[in-house]
Simulated assay, not measured.
Amino acid sequence: MNETQLSKRPSNEAISEDILNIIREKARALRFGAISLTIHDGRLTQLEITEKRRFGQ
């Protein structure tokens, strides 16, 4: 994408404080794993959490 194409994209909207709080809460609760954010047209549309559980021998 060149600079002209980038400038024609819609401006990103701010992520609401409620959504940021959910992301923080999920991150604090996660011991081992990953959090994936899905963005469509510059907007956050999905949050996925993959949790790993490890068991001792």
Rank of each mutant, 00 (worst) to 15 (best):
M1S: 14
M1K: 07
N2R: 02
N2G: 12
E3A: 15
T4C: 00
T4Y: 06
L6K: 14
L6F: 08
L6A: 15
S7C: 03
S7G: 05
K8H: 09
R9F: 11
R9Q: 15
R9I: 15
P10I: 10
S11H: 12
S11V: 09
E13H: 04
I15H: 03
I15A: 01
E17H: 09
D18P: 00
I19K: 12
I19E: 12
I19H: 06
L20Y: 00
N21K: 03
I22H: 04
I22F: 00
I22C: 05
I23R: 02
I23L: 00
I23M: 02
R24M: 04
R24P: 00
E25S: 12
E25V: 10
K26S: 14
K26H: 11
K26V: 13
A27K: 10
A27T: 09
A27F: 07
A27L: 09
R28I: 13
R28V: 14
R28A: 12
A29Y: 05
A29C: 08
R31Q: 02
A34Y: 09
A34F: 10
A34R: 12
I35T: 06
I35L: 04
L37R: 03
I39Y: 05
H40K: 14
H40G: 04
H40M: 09
G42C: 03
G42S: 01
G42L: 00
R43F: 12
R43N: 07
L44C: 04
L44Q: 01
T45F: 11
T45N: 13
T45P: 02
L47K: 03
L47Y: 04
L47W: 08
L47I: 15
L47N: 02
E48H: 15
E48W: 11
I49K: 14
T50H: 12
T50G: 08
E51L: 07
E51K: 15
K52I: 10
R53E: 12
R53W: 01
R53T: 13
R54E: 13
R54Q: 10
R54V: 11
F55Y: 14
F55K: 08
G56P: 07
G56S: 06
Q57L: 15
